[in-house]
C-alpha cells in the first residue's frame, strides 16, 4: 500500500515546510519540505553529512530549525524572522506528537528496563505507577523483551536496548515515530531484530520517518523514500522506482555505493 499525501486522500500527520538549519556558515539542512500522511512510512537516505539526521531532529525540535514550519497533528511551530522563538511549553506540546529512537539508544542506565519505559508515562502523561507498568509490560512483550523487564540496560544486548528504546517511545502513544539510524550502531544480525519490530509497527499502521542505511528495509517497508545530499532533497518518491531508476546522478552514485557493499 502506498499512500501519497499529494493525492489529498489522507490528512497529513506531519508536515515540514521549508525547514532550514544553519550552523554559523554551514548549511546543514537547506529548505526541505516533507508531508507525511497518517500510516505512511518514509525513509530518508543519503550519504553521511547529507543533513538527514539534522532534518529529522528538527521535526521534534531537538535541533531548533533556523527557519521553517513543523506541524505534527494539531500542533505547529514556525521559526523565522517574523516569529518569536517558541516557548518551552510549545516545544513540549509538539514533541508529544513524535516518539524518537536514537542511534545510540540513550536508555537511562540507572533505571531498570521497566522503569525506563514507565517513568516518562508517569511524569509526562500522569499515569499511575501500576497503570504505567501495565502498559510497559504490554509493550515489552510486543518487542519481545518481557523477560528483561527487571534488568538494567547494561545487561541487555544492543539490539535489546534499542527495542526497549522503541517501547519507551511507544509508551507515550505518539502519533508519529522518528527513527534516527536505529540500526547503525548494531551488528547486522542484531539490527535485524530491531528492523523486525519496526516492520511490525509499520504493518500496524504507525506513521514513521526513518533515517537509515538499510536499503532493503527502505525498499520493502517504506511507502516513500526521500533522498538527501548536501542538506537538500535530491528526489522523493516510490522507493522501488528510485532504487531501480534514480533520476539524479548523485542518487545513482550513492545507491551503487551502498548496494555494492
Amino acid at each position: 500500500m502506498t499512500v501519497h499525501s499529494e493525492n489529498g486522500l489522507t490528512r497529513p500527520m506531519l508536515t515540514a515546510q521549508n525547514v532550514t538549519k544553519t550552523y554559523q556558515q554551514h548549511v546543514a539542512v537547506n529548505d526541505v519540505s516533507l508531508e507525511v500522511s497518517q500510516g505512511e512510512v518514509v525513509s530518508i537516505i543519503g550519504p553521511s553529512g547529507a543533513g538527514k539526521s539534522t532534518f529529522l531532529r528538527c521535526m521534534n525540535f531537538l535541533e531548533v530549525p533556523t527557519s521553517g514550519t513543523v506541524t505534527i497533528g494539531e500542533r505547529s511551530i514556525t521559526i523565522g524572522p517574523d516569529h518569536k522563538s517558541p516557548s518551552r511549553k510549545e516545544v513540549a506540546a509538539l514533541r508529544r506528537g513524535a516518539g524518537m529512537v536514537f542511534q545510540s539508544f540513550n536508555l537511562f542506565p540507572h533505571l531498570t528496563v521497566l522503569r525506563n519505559v514507565s517513568l516518562p508515562q508517569e511524569r509526562v502523561l500522569g499515569r499511575s505507577r501500576s497503570e504505567a507498568d501495565e502498559r510497559s509490560r504490554a509493550l515489552l512483550e510486543r518487542v519481545g523483551l518481557s523477560q528483561k523487564a527487571d534488568a538494567y540496560p547494561s545487561k541487555c544486548s544492543g539490539g535489546q536496548q534499542q527495542r526497549v528504546a522503541i517501547a519507551r517511545a511507544l509508551a507515550l502513544d505518539p502519533p508519529v515515530m522518528l527513527f534516527d539510524e536505529p540500526t547503525s550502531a548494531l551488528d547486522p544480525e542484531v539490527g535485524a531484530e530491531v528492523l523486525a519490530v519496526m516492520k511490525e509497527l509499520a504493518r500496524d499502521g504507525m506513521t514513521m520517518i526513518v533515517v537509515t542505511h538499510e536499503m532493503a528495509f527502505a525498499r520493502d517497508v517504506s511507502d516513500r523514500m526521500l533522498v538527501m545530499a548536501d542538506g537538500g532533497v535530491l528526489e522523493c518518491g516510490d522507493p522501488r522506482v528510485i532504487m531501480k531508476q534514480p533520476t539524479h546522478p548523485r542518487t545513482e552514485r550513492f545507491l551503487s555505493a551502498v548496494l555494492d557493499r
Binding site: L62, A92, R95, G99, M100, F108, P120, V124, L172
Partner: peptide
Amino acid sequence: EASSAVGLS
C-alpha cells in the same frame, strides 16, 4: 536528548 525527547520537564 532522550529526556527531552520523551517530554520530561
